[in-house]
Computed example of a mutant assay.
Amino acid sequence: MISPQKYQMVQRILLLGGLFLALFYFLVFVPLCERVNALESPLGHAWANLLRTRLVDADQGNLNTTPLDLRLRELELAAARLGTLSNTLAIRLSFNSQVEAKMRRSFQLVDFQNERQLRQEELLSAAAVAGVTVAPAVWNGYPEYSADMAKPELLWGHLTVAHETALLAVRCGITNLISLNVRPPRAVSPAPSETAKPLGYELPVTLNLTGSWSAVLRFLACLPVRHGDPLPAGLPELPPGKPVFYLERIMLRKDVPENVQSVRLEIRLLGVSWAPGL
């Protein structure tokens, strides 16, 4: 027979055990269930979306479509869009077909010197008609060949950028062309690595000129426009060989204190040769 002392001890053990189970239920089991439900909810939504996708595919006859197929379609569509953008950018940045062809052929110094002379004569004639003064520093600033050039074929593009920039300034009605300088081409690489194949080359040109405020505004507005683009009112007709120019640096200040409309512009701009094959 159990003694009263042992009976009371058993009661206390059962009471403490019940209390422990109650605490475990409310403090551990209930929060754990809530956590499981919270984790299960996104899975349930994903499963429902997958089921709806499968039903739609079944209605359309695509019974073999899987989530992996859907992701593959999305990637293929993104690749197609990227390819279209790349082609559009290449067309936008390219020079005219004649210059591009010369840049991809073996460089011929005699042909380049003849072309350089013809471009300078064209600028001289246009400046004479427009009444623009061209300083000797402009003629000396046209790109020239040197034996240490790694890619002399880029001279064709650089000559186009320098000449079309100066010719554009004359067409826009500036007063004086003071100087023109070219800087060495800069490779445009897809990654900061010396071994990466360049996507193209930046062809920098610095131009110093003076003119009225309205003429300078016309000149700046024409820089990013190429032949065939819609032209805002007041801009001159662009020649077929004019490529897109990108502004890198600009300094604008008053030229003559007595004439508030006359300004001096020093500008560094870039032409871009989108020529991965070079």
Rank of each mutant, 00 (worst) to 15 (best):
Q120R: 05
R105P: 01
L70S: 12
P243K: 01
N176E: 12
T165N: 04
L159Y: 00
S262A: 15
L77D: 08
I178R: 07
G44T: 14
L270N: 04
P192D: 07
A221W: 05
L207E: 03
S106E: 14
L63Y: 11
R105T: 04
A90W: 00
L220Q: 14
K102S: 13
R35W: 10
P204Y: 01
K102M: 08
W213P: 02
M103I: 02
R105V: 01
L207I: 09
G157V: 02
V244K: 03
V36E: 14
T210S: 09
P136Q: 05
L167N: 06
S193I: 05
V36Q: 15
D59E: 08
A127P: 02
A196H: 02
V28L: 13
I174F: 13
G44D: 14
V10H: 12
S146G: 05
Q120W: 03
V263A: 03
R52A: 15
L278S: 04
T175V: 08
T133W: 08
Q108M: 09
D255G: 11
A128E: 10
S106K: 10
P31N: 08
F95K: 00
N96C: 05
A215M: 04
Y142P: 01
K102V: 00
L270K: 07
Y7H: 10
E237Q: 12
P243A: 04
E144K: 10
P204K: 03
R52T: 09
N208F: 08
V263F: 07
Y142M: 11
G277L: 13
R54V: 08
S273N: 02
V182D: 03
L77N: 15
